[in-house]
């Protein structure tokens, strides 16, 4: 083994064997360290195992809430992005105010105010649907900016070319702008989906029985902090890592010249 076996530089890339070996060694070292530090506190699996149904229900709720919020926030984002480009000033400024307000607030504040403030005041007590709407309003502001950026990234010359061949404005959006916007925004929207899954954990503060809520409940019932929260982390990673890999794949797909 030469010196520099573990070095990866543009001029002299590491061999695949070096990468695999690195991963194996690191896994061994870090899991060993974790074992030494936490093995004495990871003993109470049996009691936690009794609550597996609570845990799985929470996981299912997290997936369901995230999926519903993704659909709703995409719709909100698309409408907001178009409103922000509207020539009608009241509509445009409403969109700007919404996006800037939401992006300036922590999600916790939005959830607390939205649920205990607004939803309670209008007598809307279904926690799950309120949670989905609040999460969608939060995420929708970010998706609106992604979509607006996507539309703006399609150059003036594309509009000119579309007009030159005689397309109407509607046809231009349909055949020229949207197909290009879609390819541009898919990776960041997929990334936003990953954020959505993680952000849904905050809904536990308004008592929605999703994954984090379930783990917290099991912890309170069994006094087994590590045994409750280690699976919690793993369950989130199981959801977010594939999305993150998918995002990377999508990014590699959209690279065409404009």
């Amino acid at each position: 083994m030469k010196a520099g076996f573990f070095l990866d530089r543009p001029a002299s890339p590491a061999r695949p064997a070096a990468k695999i070996l690195t991963v194996c060694i690191l896994l061994l070292v870090y899991s060993g360290l974790c074992w030494m530090a936490f093995s004495h506190s990871l003993k109470n699996w049996e009691q936690v195992w009794n609550y597996r149904v609570t845990f799985l229900n929470g996981w299912a709720a997290t997936i369901g809430i995230s999926a519903a919020a993704l659909l709703l926030s995409t719709a909100i984002g698309a409408l907001t992005a178009l409103a922000r480009r509207s020539a009608f000033l009241p509509l445009r400024y409403t969109a700007v105010a919404y996006v800037e307000t939401v992006r300036g607030l922590p999600l916790v504040v939005l959830v607390l105010f939205g649920f205990y403030g607004i939803a309670n005041a209008i007598g809307w007590n279904d926690r799950v649907s309120v949670g989905i709407v609040l999460l969608s309003l939060f995420s929708g502001a970010y998706i609106a900016e992604i979509i607006r950026g996507g539309i703006e990234s399609v150059g003036r010359s594309q509009w000119d070319s579309a007009r030159a061949i005689g397309l109407t404005t509607t046809q231009t959006y349909r055949f020229v702008i949207f197909p290009q916007v879609l390819r541009q925004i898919l990776p960041p929207v997929a990334g936003q989906f990953s954020s959505l899954i993680k952000d849904s954990s905050l809904l536990y503060i308004i008592g929605i029985p999703e994954l984090t809520f379930a783990a917290n409940q099991i912890n309170s019932a069994t006094y087994s902090t590590f045994e409750s929260f280690v699976p919690l982390g793993i369950c989130y990673l199981v959801l977010t890592l594939p999305v993150s890999l998918w995002t990377k794949y999508l990014e590699s797909q959209v690279r065409y010249e404009t």
Binding site: S157, D160, S161, A162, R163, F175, R183, Y256
Partner: peptide
Amino acid sequence: RRHRSRTGIVFQAYNLFPH
């Protein structure tokens, strides 16, 4: 628009649809 549809127009560059 009808006039444009009956006229062939070619620009300096980048006038194709990349997708």
